[in-house]
Nucleic acid binder design. Structure first.
Lengths: 200, 200, 200, 200
DNA sequence: TATGAATGAGTTTTCATTCAT
DNA sequence: CATGAATGAAAACTCATTCAT
């Protein structure tokens, strides 16, 4: 059965999520996964390989969670879906799932392969930005810059919610999301402004 | 002399910046700082204490670097100064200074004391946002949300520049900064739009 | 079939010969022998037992190789045949057969049983020496001493050829062999001296 | 003090001598040497380095023991001195000193550096053989071959005495030594023959 | 006060052996 | 009989911390 491998990966993620990467010892991991220490080495060459494979598993998980529902609705709906997915990934799976931040601090995320892999996984999202630019709707900027403007606020809020126990109301988040969405556009429609006035 | 303490802190930062926190051993640190291993324990209770104190030192450094020039000019100039400070902290001190990211991954950054300390250090910046909100210039949102919209894009770009070797032109960065500045405001002046049209 | 046992023994010898005893792991052995790890334990009680049995197999192999051709010719021919067999065992089967040296370093070679076994296997050779002594041809010495004088030089040369990559010409070896042969005898015939003079 | 290093080397030699190289574990060694496991690593980079250094220490010890008294007396006396030194090295230091055999089975003895080192250490002995050949006293053979004829019997007897608990009388050994000495020479003087006749 | 040798518990990894299939 | 996944004790090595000098 291949579920020992899954058990080990799940336990690894849980330990990194709860205690941090520095506290990931193979003995502890074995105990957490409910296997013997030696067993880990049947499925993973060594600790580095385990982390490499976790990186890919985590990336797949994040991409899934982030892009969930991305195929339906208007551009604005798509955008806001992703934005809230980002905030909620962290809010929902509080304790035993890795965070984006933890993913990006895994050794090796900056390797060329991993970055290529990321681009592949997020191909649809990249296309979304490129199309918006081509249609003259979004600012004439590289995808990385647009992504930063659009989604980094959401990612950092998720981090604050989780690591620093902040809490935000749905309305606060919706308004923030709307600001990001409009920041992206060259000529934002004035409709959404209603949201702002209603909060006053 | 108290400069042994400084030597040790400086060496700690350098080692974390260049080799990473996981590679920070007390023997290596002693060698880098030019003191004996035992000496470290005269100035710091233990490794945790050393890191705690480094956290404060690093926070002071970041605050300085980030808020540099914050006392002069119009609100827009202040904003843009900070925004570029954030991007450049990382760009300039490439090798032996810690990054934001490394600071935020230090164990203990999420403690109540540390967060209180952060609020204190960034009091001026918080006041800047609160004043903007009070004057009806910025969106009616909590400081954390405004900060996320305004500066997280800059922080994440700095990270990409450093860790992933991205390069952005001054013009790209200025345009992005301008978008963030205008996103913050309820009724952005149309003046800055010239920047956008000039790139077309 | 009993050839699983043979496969395992052959693989064991090959691994010891090529990688050394210290690198002999049961998993590697299983792979090399083309059987499952557990299977080894059907034929051998444990690793020690496997090595014990290999010792006997190797001893039989060495005795065969060393005594090959020992039943024909004059005493001098017999002697020289063995002497060259000793040198050549190592020279010929360079890679996947164990060496004398490896055999003698197997744990347990010094046990009483093993030594009794060796005496049995080399009974003919022992008889050869005893007969020579009885006939007054060889020096009046115990077999062990005569063996040392006669054959240890050959064994050590074989070792140097193999482990230290020495090379000796056929002529050099023949002259050395002749010296050993004559050293054994009380009154060596002067005939073989021609060899020496011919090299001058 | 440098005597920790000596303690560790001595304990290493003792363990290899008594239990064999395969049983040399760093924990056991630490206990035997009366130091903590970590201490070993202050003096030796790793296990390989420890063994490398032991190799050199052992070589020095062997050379000393073997060449002791080599500077006095006639050629014959020199020869016999060495021959008996070889037999006795092992006889005297029964349990906790390494044997030649163990020395030669240490990993790395076959490296070019180690062999060069050996040649240097045994320079006087090599000169002894070369001079004998030049003077027409010894057979016209390379030093390695003469050494094999002359001393390998002694080395192997020492091994048998130690590992297999053989015992030889002084007279047996003297006669064997004499045979080796005469085997080396082109025209051995007949004087020493008296020894042989006296045993009859 | 400063040193750095010494400590020993902790780390990652290997491997002889077992046992359910 | 044969398999090979699983085991866990033991291996080599690291490192935060102490303490005699």
């Amino acid at each position: 059965m291949d579920n020992k491998r899954e058990q080990i990966l799940a336990a690894t993620e849980k330990l990194i999520a709860t205690k941090g990467l520095h506290a990931l010892s193979m003995q502890l991991l074995a105990k957490e996964a409910g296997v013997a220490a030696g067993t880990i080495y049947r499925y993973f060459k060594d600790k580095d390989d385990l982390i490499l494979q976790l990186r890919n598993a985590a990336l797949a998980f994040f991409a899934d969670a982030m892009l969930e529902g991305f195929d339906q609705g208007s551009n604005e709906q798509k955008f806001k879906r992703i934005w809230f997915n980002l905030v909620n990934i962290e809010k929902l799976c509080k304790t035993d799932t890795m965070t984006f931040e933890q993913y990006f601090n895994l050794p090796g995320v900056d390797s060329a392969e991993q970055m290529a892999h990321e681009r592949e996984v997020f191909a649809d999202l990249i296309a979304f930005f490129e199309q918006g630019v081509a249609q003259g709707k979004f600012h004439q900027l590289r995808t990385e810059l647009l992504f930063a403007i659009a989604f980094e606020p959401a990612i950092s809020l998720a981090w604050k919610i989780r690591r620093r126990n902040f809490e935000f109301s749905q309305q606060e988040l919706e308004q923030t999301c709307d600001i990001c969405w409009r920041a992206l556009q060259v000529n934002p429609e004035t409709v959404s402004n209603q949201l702002e006035s209603s909060t006053k």
